[in-house]
Simulated scan of single mutants.
Amino acid sequence: MAQQAVRELVLPDPEIRTNPDETYAQLVRVPTWMWLDRVMWKPVSETAKVPGVSVTATAIPRSATWRMGDGTTVMCKGAGTAYSVKYAAESESPDCGHTYARSSAGQPEEAFTISVTVTWDVEWHGGGEQGTVPGLQTQAQMSLRVAEAQALVVS
Rank of each mutant, 00 (worst) to 15 (best):
residue 37 D to P: 00
residue 98 H to T: 10
residue 110 E to V: 04
residue 75 M to Q: 13
residue 15 E to T: 15
residue 46 E to K: 14
residue 77 K to M: 13
residue 9 L to Y: 01
residue 52 G to H: 04
residue 18 T to Q: 06
residue 12 P to M: 02
residue 119 T to K: 12
residue 37 D to Y: 00
residue 147 A to Q: 13
residue 12 P to A: 02
residue 30 V to E: 05
residue 112 F to H: 02
residue 22 E to H: 08
residue 78 G to W: 01
residue 89 A to G: 06
residue 44 V to H: 08
residue 119 T to A: 13
residue 11 L to G: 01
residue 72 T to F: 10
residue 128 G to F: 11
residue 34 M to L: 15
residue 68 M to N: 06
residue 10 V to E: 12
residue 16 I to P: 01
residue 143 S to C: 10
residue 72 T to W: 09
residue 4 Q to K: 14
residue 60 I to L: 08
residue 1 M to G: 10
residue 127 G to L: 07
residue 151 A to H: 07
residue 63 S to I: 04
residue 112 F to T: 02
residue 95 D to I: 07
residue 45 S to P: 05
residue 101 A to P: 03
residue 5 A to M: 02
residue 129 E to G: 10
residue 19 N to C: 07
residue 58 T to C: 05
residue 60 I to V: 15
residue 150 Q to F: 07
residue 137 Q to N: 10
residue 19 N to D: 12
residue 4 Q to V: 12
residue 57 A to K: 03
residue 51 P to T: 14
residue 127 G to C: 07
residue 2 A to K: 01
residue 96 C to A: 07
residue 46 E to P: 02
residue 11 L to C: 01
residue 101 A to L: 14
residue 99 T to F: 09
residue 115 S to V: 13
residue 138 T to Y: 07
residue 78 G to C: 03
residue 40 M to V: 14
residue 117 T to Q: 15
residue 126 G to A: 06
residue 35 W to D: 03
residue 135 G to F: 07
residue 126 G to M: 05
residue 139 Q to Y: 13
residue 46 E to A: 15
residue 133 V to P: 02
residue 9 L to C: 01
residue 116 V to F: 07
residue 97 G to E: 06
residue 108 P to T: 07
residue 80 G to R: 00
residue 86 K to Q: 12
residue 44 V to M: 10
residue 73 T to K: 09
residue 41 W to I: 02
residue 141 Q to P: 04
residue 110 E to N: 15
residue 108 P to W: 05
residue 127 G to E: 08
residue 37 D to K: 03
residue 30 V to N: 03
residue 107 Q to A: 13
residue 83 Y to E: 00
residue 130 Q to N: 13
residue 114 I to V: 13
residue 89 A to L: 14
residue 133 V to H: 10
residue 74 V to R: 11
residue 104 S to T: 00
residue 96 C to V: 07
residue 103 S to T: 03
